[in-house]
Design a protein around this nucleic acid. Structure first.
Lengths: 191, 191
DNA sequence: AGGGTTGGCTAATAGGCTTAGCTTATAGCT
DNA sequence: AGCTATAAGCTAAGCCTATTAGCCAACCCT
């Protein structure tokens, strides 16, 4: 009986596909094993537990998202960078809903920290183009992150009716953020 | 052997307490039954399935949150209403993290629809004070909802380090939203 | 008091995660 | 090529959760 030639990366990749196709909740040891043509216990040669698999999946997603953000904003600044980042984020979400869902609620943890830090860093880079006062930077970053993440989460959960104008709303949101941030770029007045 | 005198509402209430104390993920038939001093199968006399219990919990949370928003914004308009709504939302989140988590990702469904519609309606009422152009109203509402929900979600997942200045960031966010919406209140220029 | 309803119970099934221990494919060495 | 040590995948088994079936007694109503 030949071996399947599995690998930690292979297993996580299968989990990622499963998450996107059937939802994060369907990422189970049984279904991942089935997809790989292997018996469930075999997975434990590569991964310690389901929780760890979920963590690894979240790390993978955060890494991919971080790369996408970095690539998309490369060479842009100000409003262009903001729009590029926002669209890249939403593009990743719609293309990989299950992976994105994996990152939600698991922003803690040691390994994921490094990966999600890159996402944050990309957003911070976008903000740099707006020359926000130092005292406001953390607040602005959190606001940006909250807004994009919130839109993504709600859309992911089908909270908006999936009309065509969801796209319009997103563009409106980008515009709203841009104007607000631009206004903050000179007045360094704190709270 | 006397009866426990359970009730659909009682069961959901127990689930809600459990969610807040130990996290939404710990809302399981076993733990709810244990908390009520009852054997697991007994719950099925009141609830059809775990999924339905989760739905009911989400509906309860959405209803409570809707009430809190309505009460908080009563009699206010403009910036005051916005601040009151935002703070009420965050207050509910910190007071009932598990219930709030229950509403995430379950914005679909028939019964929850009515409850969550009241939350949306309260936010729409806040926006009315800003006299947004009709063409922009849906977009503004989605932006507001995304932002508040995103902040709540990230904080709930401990995505920000829980510093004291998370409060400051939230106030900054309110200010940011207020200025942006105020700017939209006259210029009815669409995208 | 008596009778029907129904709430809670025990027993049992199915399915998911996980561990233990076996077997043998496979890589690496000689 | 043959030998050996490692480790990949397997079966068997335990535990836990959700769920169903069927029993029995507590409660409500008259």
């Amino acid at each position: 009986m030949p071996r399947a030639g599995l690998d930690r990366a292979t297993v996580v990749a299968a989990a990622a596909e499963l998450a996107d196709e059937r939802g994060f909740g369907q990422v189970t040891m049984s279904l991942v094993a089935e997809r790989l043509g292997v018996r469930t216990p075999s997975l434990y040669k590569h991964i310690d537990s389901l929780a760890e698999l979920h963590q690894d999946l979240a790390t993978l997603a955060a890494t991919e998202l971080g790369d996408a953000l970095r690539d998309a904003t490369q060479g842009y600044a100000g409003r262009d960078a903001l729009a590029a980042a926002a669209r890249a984020m939403r593009s990743y979400l719609t293309g990989h809903p299950g992976r994105y869902a994996a990152t939600i609620g698991i922003f803690t943890g040691p390994e994921l920290g490094a990966a999600s830090a890159r996402v944050i860093e990309s957003l911070a880079a976008v903000l740099r183009g707006y020359r926000i006062a130092p005292a406001d930077r953390t607040h602005a970053l959190r606001t940006l992150r909250s807004t994009l993440h919130g839109f993504a989460t709600i859309q992911n959960a089908a909270g908006f009716q999936w009309n065509a104008d969801t796209d319009q709303s997103f563009e409106w949101l980008i515009d709203f953020l841009d104007r607000g941030l631009a206004q903050k770029s000179l007045s360094s007045k704190p709270i």
